[in-house]
Amino acid sequence: MKSLGRRPGVAAAPDVDENHWIEIDGLHKIYRPRKSEPTHALSDIELNVRRGEFISVVGPSGCGKTTLLKILAGLIPKSEGTVRVAGRDVHGPLPEVGMVFQAATLLPWRTILQNVMVPVEVQRLDRSVYRERAAALLHMVGLDGFAEKYPDELSGGMQQRAGICRALVHDPAVLLMDEPFGALDAMTREYMNVELLRIWRESGKTVVLVTHSIPEAVFLSDRVVVLTPRPGRIAEVIDIDLERPRDLSVMASDRAGVHVERIRTHFNAHGVID
């Protein structure tokens, strides 16, 4: 899809190693609240993500997986270490990043199309150019005909799809997803997983997904990063060697079962089931 190609005029730094599209090295995060003891949220995280890779981060509640994502998004500062996205150090929100949130977080006073255009507006990009791209994205997620509707006229799944379009409209180098389907019912969630794989394939984005669901992580990812309980360290990075393209039937396969079990073992070892 040509209109979903690279963003005009914004090229990634030329010397970026595609195997280090996201580079996290020696990352620590320590929260130091003024009136209580400091909390070690993330400890010595080291992770390289290839360009175009789909990575999931799983771990028990409070293991710092959302913290990790927020550091990547430039929303909260790291305490120590290196964090680079597409060759740029992360010190604040980067235009190279698109994010999908737990709730769709659409603005109720804007139409779906106007919501999708939010990143274009705040980054002062050429609206006329990106309006086409936004329309193409809405088409890709099956929301044509809803561009002029308001969020409260759409179901939860449709709102989240609009949220994905918004995260992709400025053609970011990386797509961060913070439990994007947690609020959806099981059926819609499965459907959205299949949709997400298709969107990922068509857009070719690098995705980092934080999720509670082990099967979801296995189904979607190239690699699954398992974090330990606080302070969050990387317990294991598991290669998911299931063939692509995948459909839901792949989850019935033995190999998928082995991966799910292996991740679950980590959770059980720490005595927490999430």
Binding site: P93, P119, V122
Partner: peptide, 22 residues
């Protein structure tokens, strides 16, 4: 809503953008 403010911030909105748009 704090989530909406955060959403705009991630996409690179300035304080004034956040004021005007949220």
């Amino acid at each position: 809503d704090a989530d909406r403010v955060q959403m705009l911030t991630v996409f690179g909105a300035s304080k004034f953008d956040v004021f005007r748009r949220v």
